[in-house]
Amino acid sequence: MHAISASFCMAKIGRLVLILSLVSTLAFTLVSLSPVDPVSAYIGIDRMQISTEQEQRIIERWGLDRPAPERFLIWAGNVLRGDLGQSMIFNEPVTTVIGKRFVTSLWLMASAWLLSGVLGFVLGVVAGTNRGSPADRVIRLYSYTLASTPSFWMGLVLLAVFSVSLGLTPICCATPPGVSPDDATLWQRLHHLILPAATLSLIGVAQIALHTREKTIDAMNSEYALFAFAQGESRAGVAWRHAVRNVALPAVTLQFASLGELFGGSVLAEQVFSYPGLGKATVEAGIRGDVPLLLGITLFSALFVFTGNLVADILYGVLDPRIRIGTEEAK
């Protein structure tokens, strides 16, 4: 691949380093300033039974008596060695927790991402090609309504309808009660995935459909579309042979660049459905004051969003001949 030159890689790596150091500094500062007290978070309700002396020993052992910049440097040094610390609420290394939770979330995010991308694109092209038609009106109404719907509310409505009233889908979790994720069958997992994935994608559809619709209208009014019409191409022919290809390019990159929103959406959806993914872990870590896990997830999500944008950048160069061949010829 010629689009990815050495200078491109260097620039991207440099940016990643910069982003991660800024994010970690900011996150660490915020956590230090927050009222979260790691000791009481660790001890929980047994707090009353612990003497000041014992508490003091925990503080010394964890180095909480040292100034914040020093603590940050110790933490950052450990992170560089790959050690994100121990999660207090899960009693496991942070990396293990993130790994496990991310795999669970990945199912949810990937299905929502694919579904919203494909469905949104198709709806957008249909609406844009037949601008002003009843189909366009319906799709637009749907998109504007859904684009202004909070995802947690959507999740609650779906739960009320499909799980409570109709009893078609499970009410919570990623697996049936009492079944560990490793023992669950593929069908069981999919069954539990339907509603959260639907919640996330129904809302994701709106944005990508509106974006694609706009781009399709532009493409259908473009000069190359006019020439295609002049050659006797039908409306569907122009849409399929000319518009789709030109619209797909920005749509694919937009979809990759929207991984950040997807991540944010999954936090809410997982909370509503008690889906044990990374989003739910984030909320728990925040509420229960699990500082190492919270910082770990923050770093991980920054990396995740960065990867999405990076893939979008690379794809643009690979898919668009104007950039791909242009850079080759420039050499």
Partner: peptide
Amino acid sequence: LIPQSVAYLNPLS
């Protein structure tokens, strides 16, 4: 129609 410029050709084809 013989159009005015290559802008009338699909840029990705």
